[in-house]
Design a protein around this nucleic acid. Sequence first.
DNA 1: TACGCGTGGTG
DNA 2: TCACCAAGCGT
Length: 330
Amino acid sequence: MEPGLQQAPQLHTEIISWFTANARDLPWRRPGCSPWGVFVSEIMLQQTPVVRVLPVWEQWMKRWPEPSALAAEPSGEAVRAWGRLGYPRRALRLHAAAAAMTDRFNGSVPATREELLTLPGVGTYTAAAVASFAFGRRETVVDTNIRRVHARALSGKALPAPALNAAEMRLAVELLPDDDAASVAWNASVMELGALVCTARSPKCAVCPVRQRCAWVAAGEPAPDYVPKGQAWAGTDRQVRGALMAVLRQAREPVPRNLLLGPADLTTAAAATDNNTATSSAEADAGTDAAALAKLHALQAPAEQLERALAGLLADKLAEENDAGLQLPV
DNA sequence: TACGCGTGGTG
DNA sequence: TCACCAAGCGT
């Protein structure tokens, strides 16, 4: 990694030039976008692809053009508007961050990394990214794309380490241009290169602006020295929670617990009459989506797992319990 | 430090 | 098809 630092100036020039010609036209990058717009985009983009964020971001900014507007509404509305972006706790944290901005920062997005770090849902990456992209400050932005570009171009490895480490952070700090504007351009450019060209699975080295300088290419593109750990899904509480969330998100009135916890009653009722007509009407009466409910029941999760998953939702305040059953806060 | 956290597109 | 992967965070 050290040797590559000598060509940092060339890397800056070539990657920033590539960005100028090839960057995607994303709404949160446009000159008129507010710091709040940048902030919202950064939270939504945590572990979620750009194409899925775009439509939700547009609707979000139209409905809540500034932090105080979001803070004025119940958190459940944020969860609903979040839709299927995933990790719905991010919606709660974004709502809480808007409340904190309203209370502690005069209704504005704070401009410094230190202040940004005090907001819920804002960690090392997001604080640096917002300070850099929304406020033009010189901050070292390190995300998964940037780590991968650094690992390949400078360290000659196929993939970065499983977790961000001190050596990577030092390298990123040393690579950051001194000039404020150049540092912002560099952050955005390396990230975009990692997202569009230096991708995880099938890097497009043929169109890479720095392929001649890439340590990984020079080393003959060696394979990763570790096996990425998979994300377990089938049969997990997480899967059950996701199915529960899909039902609760669109429900406009309390959802009875027994409707969520098992199809037993419905099966009996349906069998007693004829087909699933009874099931459909029962679900319609509860204001729930039949398809979402069917997916939940199709998992055939054990009752104790359903209870545990439901408790997990309640613990995160994604739903509130009342006499009638369950619903999102309204 | 390692793990859990949603969702859907894709090679 | 089915793991892998995606602008991380909090514990």
